[in-house]
Simulated scan of single mutants.
Amino acid sequence: MIMTDSNTEDLYQDFFNGFNEFDANFTDDADNDEKSTNKIDTDWIDKFFGRRPPEIMRKDITVHLEKSFLEQCKNDDDPFDKFQIDDCNILNQINDRFICEKCHRSRLYYCYTCFELSPELIGKIPEIRLPIKIDIIKHPQELNGKSTSIHSIILSPKDVRIFTYPQMPDDWYDLNKIFLLFPKPGSKTVSDFLHHYYYYNEDDDNNDEQPTKQQQQQQCFRYDKKEFPIERIVVIDSTWQQTKKILRDVRIKQLKTLIIDSEQTLFWRYQHGRPLNHLSTIEAIYYLFKQIHMTLFDMFNNNNNNNKNDNNDHHSDNNHSNNIIDYFRLEYNGQYDNLLYFFKFTFNLIKNRYHL
């Protein structure tokens, strides 16, 4: 989208007013909503969309949008058609802000500081149960108002926790079952890790090499003899530059790391020099669960007949582990798609407001 000088200021004013309504008050957690103004503050735009290269003028709002997002906006096709996401129209019907009972600040859909949902939305938006717990470690400079990680705790409050670094969980008891989702050297993909865990040669149980398909056929599929290997997954919510400090923390360094197979982002924020598979936090969490589920479903489905008897014998010995396994034996049918509920709404809000 190319704008002329005649419509730039009007569009900027419209942008500011629109995102003021959309809860884009990014003046720190100590913000005072009574001080909000109609004066155009372009730094707020930077904070929402991400920093742009210094040589690019502020007056073209599209430079704050990710190129892949703009390409998606050119198409009439809805990129979310392939997902099973509940209708977001209820959000368009929310006109009045609410006062958060905890921090007493004015919010629209939810309080991004206290993670409290608007009373008008309670029971009217999806609530998702996740088979694995998620801990999000957020960098203190990552602004709550623009962070997609907040979506996860609003939509899955029983299974997601958010900590602002240096605050950290104090209940990481078994580090062998807690994994960090981060692309470090030596990280295994979710698929590789699960295949190695469940397919192994009884005489070589400590072998870390990923078995080939031919080796898997010669080895034992032993899901019924082991506990489920993942209890909790840790996700870092920060820019790449901010991540370094958190990664140096001794508690984080102890965790084994996992990565997800490449997926293309639909994120709108400008990410200078980052590839299309550089996902937003909520996208990464969504694809993590989807890939875990589809990997395990394929493994259990392909080996179901060979393990029926063993599974029946073992069920009473490890009920919790088998409950999780039984969950993954159901074919994937959009169980986690609603994690993108607010993400989809924001995507379409930006696209429709500016007729991109």
Rank of each mutant, 00 (worst) to 15 (best):
G334P: 07
P126I: 08
Y223H: 15
N348H: 13
F182H: 15
Y287R: 01
S156V: 02
Q84V: 12
Q242T: 04
K290L: 14
S36W: 14
T8E: 04
Q218C: 11
Q271G: 07
K290I: 08
L330V: 05
E71H: 05
T295N: 13
Q264P: 00
I252G: 09
W268G: 06
T62I: 11
I324L: 05
E283M: 09
V235D: 11
K245D: 13
E21P: 06
L276A: 10
K245A: 14
D205M: 06
N306Q: 14
L356M: 12
I324E: 01
D10C: 01
F297T: 01
D41Q: 04
D96C: 05
D81S: 12
S36M: 11
I2P: 00
Q254L: 09
I132Q: 05
K213A: 13
K146A: 14
L70M: 10
R161L: 04
L258V: 08
F83D: 09
N75D: 12
D171K: 03
L65M: 15
K256M: 06
K344V: 08
N92V: 00
D203Q: 11
I137E: 14
T281D: 06
A30G: 15
I61E: 00
F345E: 10
N318Q: 05
D298L: 01
I350W: 05
T239P: 03
Q210H: 06
K59I: 13
S262Y: 01
K158G: 03
P53A: 15
K244N: 11
W44V: 09
F179R: 08
D337C: 07
F182W: 15
V63T: 07
Q72G: 02
T346A: 10
D76I: 06
I236P: 04
D76Q: 08
T8F: 00
D96W: 01
F22R: 10
M3F: 13
